[in-house]
Design a protein around this nucleic acid. Structure first.
Lengths: 235, 235
DNA sequence: TGGGATTTGTGCGTATGTATG
DNA sequence: ACATACATACGCACAAATCCC
């Protein structure tokens, strides 16, 4: 826990502690937090610091404040972090991933374009079947620069959180762009997903930019409509 | 301009002034703003106030800050206000709308549910064909509470911006929720949209909440994939 | 119903850290 | 190296909304 949080800004440390308390179930959705004055005493920081931490978490949809009333943990904490009003998830509980193909390739020129790589570059290619509760829900094709691919290769056959895995290797992302469209399933896709050829699928194209604003991932995922939920909230 | 901004919080007033400067082109995308100290003098407020205004605008994607460097107007201000990274639009230039049906109805129970209306209530129903450059791109079914429907009825056969029209009548919205899915076109839809039956369509379900957090609109729009573009950016 | 205590919101001043140019 | 600019952090005061007895 307390690794080297020492060099992080105080309000970030406070934020992390508050989030921890929520994740550990000490404060549950709907619960009220201690007042700002109490938190000031408890953590021995100024009100400014407490308020900045709280403000960030309100912005992230984790907390909820209103004048005169105590601050509460928001019901339905959306997706947690980083999401400014976008919810995106697969429907199901028991998630799994089956690796269909994995290779270093020189073709896939459209992917190289998306990744801002020269046409002569090798890229890392991966095709995976995403499962929920034992049933296939999506086919995902991922294209990665080789440096990123090497990191992913070791865990490609497991269920893993893409960004957490990269984070563990010091690779972080700053910006995700997703494009939504629809297609009719090809015979190949239909066979794998267990639907009829021609059935409507939802396609998500995703481009992720790294800290240096260079692409670190381009992927195309085709979901069966039953297994997909995409909700956007604009306030 | 300076109506009764007097009673608004100072940082809100500052925010409005900054936004005005951008909208009037005094500060263009990429331009740098005066430093915080300069703004403090110019508006005669504390740094806290200036920073709170700037922080809000950064959050809204209007401004861009970085340590040590001057604050800039963000390039590509997304959609301007209120949108935390969601872009949503139809492809085409010459937009038009054809009214297919319009009626006050007692059925459409699913819509009443979405609008939080009792089962006995009448609702306003509208089915319209959306055109771009002379070609059909979407079928839209809208369900409105009667009070809202009366306002819309007068302009239903014109191309109009839904929210602007309501705004002109003193009806404002606070929250929009959209759900994205995909369907295969029915024969009816295919005929109207000029595609083949079974072709994949993108469906947008939209619920809009008014100032009082009560629904003012529920609609279902089915787009042909060629005419649709949905991009989500998460920072 | 009322009114006082509590809690968050707004705003000011100041000082220091740290990245940029 | 230096000045500038934004980031973090402390303390104080009062306003406004809520809560609770």
């Amino acid at each position: 826990m307390g690794k080297d949080q020492k060099k992080l800004p105080l309000y970030i440390q406070i934020k992390n502690k508050l989030v921890s308390n929520i994740k550990e179930g000490i404060w549950k959705p709907g619960d009220t937090l201690p007042s700002e004055s109490q938190l000031m005493e408890q953590y021995n920081v100024s009100r400014t610091t407490i308020r900045q931490a709280i403000r960030d978490l309100v912005q992230n949809g984790i907390l909820e404040t209103s004048r005169g009333a105590p601050t509460k943990v928001k019901e339905i904490p959306e997706d947690g972090l980083g999401n400014p009003g976008v919810i995106h998830h697969e429907i199901g509980t028991d998630m799994a991933v089956i690796l269909l193909r994995m290779e270093k390739s020189q073709t896939h020129y459209h992917a190289k374009y998306q990744l801002s790589l020269p046409e002569t570059a090798d890229i890392f290619y991966m095709e995976r079947l995403r499962m929920a509760d034992g049933k296939p829900i999506a086919i995902q094709q991922s294209y990665l620069p080789l440096a990123i691919g090497d990191v992913i290769e070791q865990v490609a056959d497991k269920k893993f959180d893409f960004f957490s895995t990269l984070g563990n290797h010091g690779i972080y992302h700053t910006n995700i762009k997703e494009h939504v469209s629809a297609d009719n399933a090809t015979q190949y896709e239909a066979d794998i997903l267990g639907v009829s050829a021609g059935e409507a699928l939802i396609t998500i194209e995703r481009t992720t930019l790294g800290i240096d604003s260079k692409p670190i991932e381009y992927s195309t995922t085709k979901y069966t409509t039953k297994a997909f939920k995409y909700t956007i909230e604009i306030d």
